[in-house]
């Protein structure tokens, strides 16, 4: 099942499928490790819930929900 990354529950593992972002943002996300077919897991969020930290390729990267909702992940793993 494919959902947007911001909807992936905390501590649940997903698999990145697609980055539906503009070219510049895509470059940045790819360089940070948000590459299709990579495992990703949200590990904690800020108090308002609109910024979450994700574990991807053993690094922790914080992303706003406005960016995370453009990343599609598969939760079947």
């Amino acid at each position: 099942m494919e959902i947007s990354l911001n909807r992936l529950p905390l501590l649940k593992l997903g698999n990145i499928k697609n980055l539906l972002v503009d070219k510049k943002t895509k470059c940045k996300l790819l360089s940070l490790g948000f590459i299709p077919e990579t495992a990703i897991k949200p590990v904690f969020s800020n108090f308002s819930g609109n910024l979450r930290a994700y574990e991807v390729r053993k690094a922790i990267i914080a992303l706003r929900d406005t960016d995370a909702n453009k990343i599609r992940v598969d939760v079947s793993i």
Binding site: V21, T25, K28, L29, L32, L51, A53, A59, I60, I61, A62, L63, R64, T66, D67
Partner: peptide, 10 residues
């Protein structure tokens, strides 16, 4: 419009 924001937490 606010741009995308990403930050590594080392």
């Amino acid at each position: 419009i606010p741009t995308s924001f990403s930050l590594e937490l080392p």
